[in-house]
């Protein structure tokens, strides 16, 4: 059954359609990924689902409650990790989590235990009395996810959870996020513009310019690209092209000094291909489709960077300032 139901949701900022007639459902206990370039409308959608922003039209139902008319009930059901950190760096890890528990009206008798459990789950229990500003970027992110889990929400929203983290911290964070649905029974709704991160999702919606342009499991989406791509370098590309057409009835294309063919099973096709072409082949590689190819295939372009408005610029400079002065 679906725990999030979104129906013809739109959000306009003046003339800009940040979210444009979006529909989707999220099944309980799954990881749902919102994938798209910066400025595609991911954060706007999350803000609406978290009741921080009112939609222009359409409905959003979270855990059975309407985000516009029952915001307080929605907020009780969800935990949120925003793109920018909302930890208080001048408080300790323990204080950050304790205040969260109080804000969410967690019973006094349970607070201590829930906070300690959360800290143990992310492996920061030993450092609970350290100020957050002494933590590394990866530790802060983990702490933030742990904080969002303290009140035992049914749904966890993660907006670009790994933004600005080094590869090791990213892996570390994913390792622990992917444990959550099974161990804590939580549904995860996340956004990302890293294609490789979306691989962990059970279902993905690809969003571009406010519209959902594709939906499905990572496997389904990759299949939609039409199979593997074989890249060849030969001594005579034109001759190779005609051999492939005549002997194997496949259509290849030339891009730069390379030749590429899209086939269903690249590994199975390779021996035959080399037998036909003989020694004009200089090099060959097979590429499995990635979600990146899915995106390219659908939109015909690389991930587009949005021109920032002035508030974004300010935020960016604050982020840069923080990065420089944080003792990470």
């Amino acid at each position: 059954m679906s725990i999030i139901h979104v129906d013809s949701l739109s959000k306009h900022f003046n003339s800009i359609k940040a979210v444009d007639n979006v529909n989707f459902d999220v099944r309980e206990g799954t990881i749902f990924g919102f994938l798209g370039p910066n400025g595609a409308g991911k954060t706007t959608t999350i803000s609406i689902l978290c009741t921080l922003l009112k939609p222009t039209s359409g409905t959003a139902i979270v855990d059975g409650y309407n985000c516009v008319t029952q915001p307080a009930k929605v907020r009780r059901s969800i935990g949120v990790v925003f793109q920018d950190t909302t930890l208080d760096k001048d408080l300790t890890a323990y204080e950050n989590l304790l205040y969260h528990a109080i804000l969410y009206n967690v019973e006094k008798s349970e607070r201590q235990k829930l906070v300690d459990d959360a800290l143990m789950f992310i492996g920061l229990y030993e450092r609970k009395n350290d100020l957050v500003k002494r933590f590394s970027g990866g530790m802060k992110r983990r702490l933030e996810v742990a904080r969002a889990m303290v009140h035992q929400p049914k749904i966890l929203f993660l907006d670009e959870p790994t933004l600005g983290l080094d590869p090791q911290s990213r892996n570390n964070l994913w390792e622990f996020i992917t444990r959550l649905p099974e161990e804590k029974g939580v549904t995860i709704f996340m956004t990302t513009h890293y294609m490789d991160e979306a691989e962990v999702c059970d279902e993905i919606a690809i969003i571009d310019r406010g519209k959902i342009i594709a939906r499905g499991s990572p496997e389904e989406l990759k299949k939609s690209v039409g199979g593997d791509v074989i890249y060849l370098k030969t001594t005579n590309n034109l001759k190779a092209l005609s051999i492939i057409r005549e002997e194997m009835s496949l259509t290849g294309k030339i891009k730069g000094d390379e030749l590429f063919i899209t086939v269903t099973r690249g590994d199975a096709c390779l021996p035959e291909l080399i037998r036909h072409l003989g020694d004009i082949v200089k090099s060959v590689r097979v590429q499995r489709p990635t979600l990146n190819d899915v995106f390219l295939n659908l939109t015909g372009k690389e991930i587009r960077e949005e021109t920032p408005d002035s508030m974004d610029e300010i935020k960016e400079s604050v982020r840069a300032y923080r990065r420089r002065f944080d003792r990470t």
Binding site: K73, R76, D84, D88, H100, R147
Partner: peptide
């Protein structure tokens, strides 16, 4: 609200 902790408070059921 723009940069930090206030968002944590605003998204809480308060």
């Amino acid at each position: 609200k723009e940069f930090g902790y206030m968002k944590e408070i605003l998204v809480a059921p308060v």
